[in-house]
Amino acid sequence: MAVGNEVRSACRYQARIMITIGHHDCRLSDDRETGERMNEARDELLKRLENEARLLRRNLWRALRAGGGGHAGGSSSAADMLTALYFHRMRLKPSEPDWPDRDRFVLSKGHANAALGAVLAQAGFIDDALLDRFYHFESPFGMHPDIKVPGVEMCTGALGHGLAIATGMAYGARIQNKSFHTFVMLGDAELHEGSNWEAAMAAAHYRLDNLTAIVDHNKIGQSGRIEELISLDPLADKWRSFGWEVREIDGHDMGQIVDTFDALPLKKTRPTAIVAHTVKGKGVSFAEDTYLWHSNSVDDEVHARALKELGGA
């Protein structure tokens, strides 16, 4: 049974609330009632998640078009794992974004905010229309996550911050005897920041098995291939040597993603590092596996080409 025993409330909500974001009032509405997933067959689950991931990619490209461009590469490589987190693994109440017992997700590689915004919209945390206001004047949805947006746990994107913050969240759960799990997604080039390894040491020392770090290992940074910038290899061994339980997966294989998320924590008394091998720009051939699409312009024509490849309108 891939779904696990817990009743997960992601997508089991009815929300119609008025929220205030800065100077803007946004009406959230979502009347989807998807019901219990506990008996969903595995192939149906995977199919549902893959469809959601395709929609996520369409939505992130839509946001990029609204903004005139942005970080297509790292947003696309993260899309499948974000989908599995928000539509399968995490316990969330989109109608109550500050629910104290919610699982936490920190997008340390905050430049992938187009993907985070898309998944938050699809999950019902924010108004879908906000995706069309990416980068717009006074929009709460800018290039990097802002804590003022419902569902966003921390303002990130200055790299090397998220793992420490997530460690604090996981420690906070322990102090308050709460059962929520904290996830943090790191870019691979982000791991050049030494502060990550301070946090990696501390999380292992404190045996925070309620913490999972996901490394979106797309092998490409802003200036080129990471191997040619500063090599991270052997990456999995680095995490192991810091005291983490490590699993390497294909970050685009929904079955592997779901199985790994369902198995957390991989080992009692250890934090988990998932080194997810991914393709930068995944899903749109001209953006795949090139530093040129770390960040790039997106106009109507580029957007149309991307959507054509993604399909599934």
Binding site: R104, G168, G172, A173, S195
Partner: peptide, 28 residues
């Protein structure tokens, strides 16, 4: 002792962890 965290000589980590703790309702 349950409300004490030694982070070692790692000031950046101390602030990051403190921020994360604060988001859960604690006062670091």
């Amino acid at each position: 002792p349950d409300r004490f965290i030694e982070v070692g000589i790692a000031e950046q980590n101390a602030i990051g962890i403190a921020s994360g703790l604060a988001t859960t309702g604690l006062h670091p």
